[in-house]
Design a protein around this nucleic acid. Structure first.
Lengths: 269, 269
DNA sequence: CTGCTTTGTGCAGGTATCTGCATGTTACGA
DNA sequence: TCGTAACATGCAGATACCTGCACAAAGCAG
């Protein structure tokens, strides 16, 4: 499988392929790379040193390993759990006050709604429906009577599904429309003109469907989401009943929310 | 399941895998690690000392334990991940050999199939469908082209859904029947008379549906599942094409599997 | 076109690391 | 208390590494 010796390769091109090869197989020896690319072990060593300094791989004795090797699946989601963590905690704590025992609630994906789910342990007999794949692992079984996941294609980075909102209860049952008493929607951005937006079209469709099927809608957004607009519009400001955040919104946004008859709840940090 | 002697391994790569292995199984002996990785006990000791100084595991007399031991409020699932962990690892490793790049695979819930998913990093362009809510968090995004979760009611203890097997791709789309090249089914028990059984009716229905929709079916069962019968029958022995386990089944079961034209694959421990 | 510089490559030497074995010491269990 | 197993240390062979140097090819100035 070694490359044709007649075919002359540029050093830079070889290095790029070399890096890709390492990432592909995870770990590889210098000798293997040397025979594979038809160069001496010394050249491979120098290439690896350079690629290591560029962070494209990790140099080790005997060869190199992929930078992803060994690192736990510390997903992008895990990282996002830690940004604005205090704000999300406060928002979640305030939001659970809207939930009564026995209620039916919908939660979309995202770290803010995950924080909300963690604040539910005092509740009982809830019926919960969500597209957030992390919630079943985080929530206590004592809290709910039933927990439903909306199936469909998975977005890995957010650990959510993007499928339609419907449920079938048996192998041959037909679709059943579902409704909730209250829907909690963590959005990507909020602005007076743009309304509620997020960066992914599938997520936006899921959120909009949840909002349509909820008697009351609470938007969750920390202060970093203010006065920004992202790719996909979920709904205009009027679609929500509550707007839960951690700091008082800027004047223009607050005025627009007030005009849209949205009740703004500010969580004290 | 000693590693292939032909495959040269890097010290750093071995150490990374070693640390992952310790975390996986919770506790392990030096001798076990030595035979598992095909190096001397001295080398294992040195690796463990180094990993201990890096805080990746805790060195003990005779072996090492996971640093996470005792720190987590172990869910029932987390506990089950550690029982027969080595056996499940071996089974998973053997099972992935049946999967080709680009294949469509179905995985049911359970810790054995989760172990299988962890052994997939070398594969590419897979299409994966599962009711196991843990898989999206555990699997590398590089492995698959598409990943689907079957929606429905959640069983908290197993972190699975029990919904029907179908997919809808748009808000108003109709159900789409899905099929897989191969289905991997981790069962609760196997016996010559009872066939494949499990303890939960919903799970059994899900498994049976997956088996019907898979061109080939592989049953995964460690030795603790032999010659037992549980509440709900999934299928008779004939329904499977492969039976993957960690020890040779007892004579009566082996005979029954042979008579049912099931190929038995035993993973070396 | 010629000559120079720069870059890449391979080779040779000495040095460092990895690994397994041997030896003596320590810790655990009966 | 004793015996076994695990540990620590030292050593030697093998492998991989680093440094310096020589040579070839490409690029550039004149």
């Amino acid at each position: 499988m070694s490359l044709s010796d007649a075919e002359k390769r540029l050093p830079a091109g070889r290095k790029a392929e070399l890096a890709a090869y390492v990432v592909e197989v995870g770990q590889v020896t210098v000798a293997k790379l040397a025979s594979h690319f038809g160069v001496s072990t010394d050249t491979v060593r120098r290439d690896l040193d350079q690629l290591d300094s560029e962070g494209l791989l990790i140099r080790t004795h005997g060869g190199a390993i992929s930078p992803a090797a060994g690192t736990k699946p510390d997903t992008e989601l895990e990282v996002r759990l830690h940004v604005q963590a205090a704000a999300k905690e406060a928002i979640g704590k305030l939001a659970v006050g809207l939930v009564e025992d026995g209620a039916v609630i919908m939660l979309n994906g995202g770290t803010t709604t995950l924080a909300l789910a963690r604040h539910l342990p005092r509740h009982r007999n809830l019926t919960i429906a969500t597209n957030n794949l992390r919630i079943p692992a985080e929530i206590s079984p004592n809290v709910f009577r039933d927990l439903y996941i909306f199936g469909g294609p998975v977005r890995t980075v957010s650990q959510t599904t993007t499928g339609p909102i419907s449920m079938r209860v048996g192998p041959d049952a037909q679709d059943i429309e579902v409704r909730a008493d209250i829907g909690f929607i963590g959005v990507g951005a909020v602005s007076a003109q743009g309304g509620y937006t997020t960066s992914n079209l599938g997520d936006a469709a899921m959120m909009a469907a949840m909002m349509q099927r909820s008697t009351r809608v609470a938007i969750l957004a920390d202060s970093s989401k203010f006065d920004r607009s992202l790719f996909a519009r979920i709904a205009t400001l009027e679609a929500a009943d509550y707007f839960i955040t951690n700091t008082t919104p800027p004047a223009d946004l607050a005025a627009a929310l007030g005009a849209a008859d949205v009740q703004v709840l500010v969580a004290e940090s």
